[in-house]
Write a protein that binds this DNA or RNA. Structure first.
Lengths: 344, 344
DNA sequence: TTGTACGCGTTATCAG
DNA sequence: CTGATAACGCGTACAA
């Protein structure tokens, strides 16, 4: 690959002049500029960002750590973050941890070695060891948490109002006449898992419905746990009249389980889910869900991170809380109550 | 961030010794090794990969360029590629182009500036300008194409046997008694788009069914085009008895369109799709599809690329062709022929 | 095993 | 406005 020296030599100028043309920071006479640009094109010159990073001590790279790239929730976040990064000429590097803390640690180490300018992190569920994250924060690298925030660490974050979203969704179920509402939670070692459960509890309590632990099934946000717990619910001696599932991946599993068990939604049971599958438009029945502002989560997170990096945001930790929006659809239409029959 | 010098000083050894401990290339006495490791931990030292890259002239980074991260086909490929990269300690950097050639060019330039050791590329549809790719290839950086290969450039690739996959799928439709089979193609400026159409044509020809251009609808692999063309088909004066859709994203659109038009699958029309939605298990009806080996595509692509980079693979371009597998499910069950009624 | 000079490609600084 | 040159942090190679 051509170097700045070769360009300079080809254009008959000094390397400093080439550098000035490329960066545009210091004006160069049109005549020389022209010659430089020609040499750049002729040699297919691409400035060596590595050398540049070494010198300026920043890489213009953002490290993003997410737990599950096969959950469509995250690709949307990535798109948002990538868009913000692109606009401000940062490169986003995303690493997937498969919900494993050990991979999260490795990813963090790899990205710190690469000297990314900042981190966007959605943590994996774990036993609460966040030493690796605390270390990164202590090193002075800005961090913004996305969606999932570990406890006891004061950094920026962009999150969803999980409690409210869950509450409104369960309220809707109650309004539809449901008294016996099962919940399939996410990992309760995660704040978002607990918050959604909390919203569920609040909605029940408001309605004067007693909280029944036997209706609480703890999943892990992955499809297989939805499938497993869905089966468990379907084969209970007594079917609840509704299920509130705490994310869309698990809902896919639940749908399959119900289907195999011959339980029809919404005729036999109502289903509502936190989080939306982008492909839900093709589902039958259409799912009542709490849609999250995924793109925005990523976009705002990356924007905030870059502001921190560039010193445009100073002072204590900032938390941006985004609302989630309830969409009422077919899956909660008079279900399980045998008041009406619904055919998709 | 701590430097190798600080570690050396803290451990009371030379930087060369620290370097040797870290890299493990030259043995160091257990005693000193221990002291170095302690210092590393105490200082939370992370080797500066930037400086290292500048010296050794390789970054251990793989650049991946994909057209649509919201199409679940690609996250699976990313997982595969990332897995292969991780195992061989490379870092995968993925950039999404939103199917836009202009972004592809920018991505390529950015990654070349970053001096990635090689490229994994699934091209965006365009007017055939592949100068940017040819330049990258000419610069000596290894490239492996994934799934989508531009014409007229001799580089490695990992692809799917599209012709055969499509042919078998349409054959199945023919076997089910369909004579009038519409096709919603992908972008025909892409090889994969043309190949799937070719498979369709072959299957028809085998069966002695005349090829009818009026049944060919050109989409672009995105959901909205499926929706639009689905509507078009649904409102034709004469409904075909089956549709073969060339990828799953478009199928989601088609399903929605049929639904809105009151056309029921499989009762009124059969549907088969190339490519599988991972969430298809929750669909009604379950979709007959040609499943692609997505993870493998990514894994094999990245493995091959790293082999090239490390000189373990030499010689002319290699193409790995992976089979796609037909899964027959409910959406093609005796449809449109009014021979039977099927209720999901 | 250690010390150390050297170079990697760039940018920043300062002298012309 | 242009050019010469010293960093940036590390890996390598050598001599001690």
């Amino acid at each position: 690959m051509a170097t700045i020296k070769e360009v300079a030599s080809k254009a008959g100028v000094s390397i400093a002049t080439v550098s000035n043309v490329i960066s545009g920071r210091i004006p160069v006479s049109p005549h020389l500029k022209q010659r430089v640009l020609e040499a750049v094109r002729a040699l297919d010159y691409h400035p060596n960002h590595i050398a540049r990073s070494l010198k300026v001590r920043q890489t213009h790279m953002l490290g993003m750590i997410i737990p599950d790239i096969t959950n469509p929730f995250f690709p949307e976040i990535i798109r948002g973050a990538e868009e913000a990064a692109r606009e401000r000429s940062y490169l986003l590097i995303t690493v997937n941890t498969d919900e494993r803390v050990e991979r999260e640690q490795n990813a963090l180490a790899a990205l710190r070695s690469r000297r990314v300018d900042g981190f966007l992190i959605a943590i994996a569920p774990g036993d609460g060891t966040i030493e690796h994250i605390r270390n990164a924060a202590d090193s002075g690298t800005p961090i913004v948490f996305l969606d999932r925030v570990p406890p006891g660490i004061g950094v920026d974050s962009v999150v969803v109002d999980n409690v409210r979203g869950a509450r409104e969704c369960v309220r809707h179920l109650v309004r539809m006449g449901h008294q016996e509402i099962a919940i399939i939670t996410g990992s309760l070692s995660l704040g978002i898992g607990r918050q959604r459960l909390e919203g569920y509890q609040e909605a029940l309590s408001e309605a004067g419905i007693e909280y029944n632990p036997a209706l609480v099934f703890e999943g892990d946000f992955r499809e297989t746990s939805g499938y497993r717990l869905g089966k468990q619910i379907a084969f209970r001696q007594h079917l609840p009249s509704a299920i509130f599932v705490c994310n869309a991946m698990m809902t896919v599993g639940v749908l399959q389980a119900l289907d195999e068990a011959g339980v029809h939604c919404p005729r036999d049971i109502a289903l509502a889910t936190f989080d939306e599958l982008p492909f839900g438009r093709a589902f039958h029945p259409l799912l009542t869900c709490v849609a999250q502002p995924t793109f925005d989560l990523g976009f705002k997170g990356a924007s905030m991170l870059i502001d921190r990096i560039e010193g445009k945001l100073t002072g204590g930790p900032v938390t941006i809380q985004l609302p989630a929006e309830l969409s009422i659809r077919e899956s909660t239409a008079a279900a399980g109550l045998n008041r009406a029959r619904f055919t998709a």
